[in-house]
Design a protein around this nucleic acid. Sequence first.
DNA 1: CGACACATGTAACACGTTACATGATTTG
DNA 2: CAAATCATGTAACGTGTTACATGTGTCG
Lengths: 192, 192
Amino acid sequence: MSIRHGLLALLEDGPRYGYQLRAEFESRTGGTWPLNVGQVYTTLARLERDELVQPAGADDEGHVFYALTAGGHTEVRTWFTTPVQRESRPRDELAIKLALAIATPGVDVRAVVQRQRTDTLRALRDYTRLKARADEPDLAWLLVLDSLIFQAEAEVRWLDHCEARLTRRTPAPSPSRARTGGARRTTEEASR
Amino acid sequence: MSIRHGLLALLEDGPRYGYQLRAEFESRTGGTWPLNVGQVYTTLARLERDELVQPAGADDEGHVFYALTAGGHTEVRTWFTTPVQRESRPRDELAIKLALAIATPGVDVRAVVQRQRTDTLRALRDYTRLKARADEPDLAWLLVLDSLIFQAEAEVRWLDHCEARLTRRTPAPSPSRARTGGARRTTEEASR
DNA sequence: CGACACATGTAACACGTTACATGATTTG
DNA sequence: CAAATCATGTAACGTGTTACATGTGTCG
């Protein structure tokens, strides 16, 4: 329901028209999650169906404005007031993947972990670069970027953690191991 | 595509029937992501439509088995071989929420952050407890749980980071502040 | 017998997402 | 003029998810 609520939040600032909503959504999230224009209209239609927004006439140039209804306001309030529940979040594909990989015969779990690690590390570098060469440091965009960074970091740490656990389970895979990414961030905490 | 791929992965171990697939999916992920049985059949039908699985007869008790096709095998291989791309992941609702909250008038961003922080911290405690009182420490389930923990920790850190940034922007909100959760994990890293 | 788990399946809907059609307006 | 951008919209599809119907077997 990210987009749905996102549009509602934008409308909290006053009536907007479709194209405008896309532009604002993208600019406020730093273009991190591009939004197909068509989707704005689809979502707007659904919001109208649910009586959270309503058409608010057009301006001189024929732009079709939408405004929040009373229910829409309430919805936005509730969204901002209620924490994002962990149960409402989508299933974590990576976690599922690894959990299943472990018990699936013929799958080299360690390899899966390492490939993912390399890739996540690459993403991390990209984010860092992006952050470095960011002029006009918009606060919102910066925080979104940091969110991505924090998440990627956590993922790398978890992958290292997984590898440690897997190593403890299976003796040792091969003598020398080529490390692709940067230095190990955390020396894995001891057993349980 | 988590469930889709999940079922395929389970079938990599050999033919299964619907009910069995649900049971295994849930047990292998420690019941973290409950799966409606109906969805197994829906997904199975779609997989058959895409020629990734095919009916493989029934056993003595009439259980309808499904098996991977050649294409199904390939798909599983590819899934395990290819890292989960960050672009393919769903939009992060929390990040969007905060990014939009910042520019939305009449929204107390700090309050949003703190409510979320409290809630995430609570989830973190729950996970930790769950981990503590876990007998039969299944590796996969343990890693899934750790994934949730790492993510929640990262989220708390990020929220603290956000609060610091927000504080630096706006002077100071009120004299005394009641801290609900545990002690501050990270003293926020310095400026940029 | 009644409740409950096992087992299969379908219908319906939600949201997200894309591709396409169609104009108006701006700009090189 | 042609291309690009602005702007609105629709049709179609995909996955995830639930609610429901239906039947069998088991156990107290």
